[in-house]
Design a protein around this nucleic acid. Sequence first.
DNA 1: GAGTTTGAAACT
DNA 2: CAGTTTCAAACTC
Length: 484
Amino acid sequence: MDTPQKNQINAVNPNSIFEKHFFSCVKLVYVTQRGLRRRCLDFEMASVLGKNSDDNSNTDSTASQSGRVRIANEKRLVPTKRSSDSRKCILPGIGLHLNALATLKDHNGTKNEELSSGRQLSLLCSTSSLQISTSQDHHHHHLALVAVSSERELDLPNNGVHPAGDCSQAHEYLNQNSPKRKRRKSDPGGETDGCKHCTCKKSKCLKLYCECFAAGVYCIEPCSCHDCFNQAIHEDTVLQTRKQIESRNPLAFAPKVIRSSESVTEVGDDPNKTPASARHKRGCNCKKSSCLKKYCECYQGGVGCSISCRCEGCKNAFGRKDGSVLIEVYPEEESEACEKGVAEKALQKTEIQNIEDHSDSALVSTPSRLSRPLLPLPFSSKGKPPRSFVATISGSALFASSSQKLAKPNSVWSQSKHFQTVTDDDIRDVLRSDSSPVACIKTSPNGKRISSPNCDLGSSPSRRGGRKRILQSIPSFPSLTNHQ
DNA sequence: GAGTTTGAAACT
DNA sequence: CAGTTTCAAACTC
Ligand SMILES: [Zn+2]
Ligand SMILES: [Zn+2]
Ligand SMILES: [Zn+2]
Ligand SMILES: [Zn+2]
Ligand SMILES: [Zn+2]
Ligand SMILES: [Zn+2]
């Protein structure tokens, strides 16, 4: 609301924007095939970009080609605010990172910033692979892709951290206009699927408190932030601030959840250890939530707690820090609870519920660990339909290569190249729709194969006949805990 | 929608 | 590095 600036930005002329290439939107859609529902991405794109020389890394060729495409439609973006109702985005899509932006910017960035209104920057990167397709299609832009790796991000929108995650923002633009959106959910909370918008009042959206900023994207209209500086027009400030923060903590903008799986993994180190599956980089420090709510970053990111977590009374449905996914042991918890004694009613309740669920599911037994599938679904508690969760991952290969180990995600742009490679193949399924924290993702290391996850399972995995796959593969993070 | 709870981020 | 404050999201009502 208050941000006039934002509007201005949007107002900027579309034409220019178009000239530059960037995707305007990507959406996910469901497609039904033979009974099976799949989600696809829809891209609308456009843009162009151009020159970016710097990206040397990226091939320009791509860019240029695609760049050509122009789309008239895009106007939508610009529009002044969307009508009142505009919904937010519906799906999360590809991510963008500001980081990339930075890079980009050097070269010619000037324009970009302005033009772009929001978060588009990132688009480029992530989408690179897509672009290809897109360009061909130039027509309207909606291509359906089968799921893409990028989607994975979708799943985890919550994490704002992920680079990919951000994309949603981009989507937003799309969404606004796009007539097509297929799905919308009601969004009780206000958020919808993956899109989130900040409501910062005092940080000016220049601190990590701001989800938009933390995710590496600019604030967009739906954000209800006050005195927002996280806008393209303040790019300098944004970048500067980012650097500062980064200098303090190089991993500040890196994805919080690291995925690793066997496949990609290599990274590692160590064969002995099992790779664990995805885990939060720094671990959480939950004291009262038992890692059962989104207050817990591990839980929010759809990953189990690891040894690096300092949580107390961990009951993370995705895996406890000790490795056990479920709760077999009550004692521990009880004891803790007892200690506190009080507080806990609420907690206990929650716990109990969860537990029950688990049992039902059958997780209790040992083997079950692996299966963690049914989590209690925290979601349900919220009222959302229970969806499932699960799988893990965050970053698939894409990032993995670079970010995983490295610490600097920033280079998203550069990563883009990687994306190309990976993406197509990866794309397969996807995600979730709602906001569930988790995602389902799968990963394919190299490519192909992935299992599908189910994103939906939610409460009843079994119930849903449709998608069946469940988390089979998810290894649990549990035991492993790798070092850190 | 207002108000509370929560734990990360920021600050000291 | 720990303790405190600040902050905005997650949650509750
Ligand atoms: Zn903000
Ligand atoms: Zn914002
Ligand atoms: Zn903002
Ligand atoms: Zn936690
Ligand atoms: Zn944790
Ligand atoms: Zn925990």
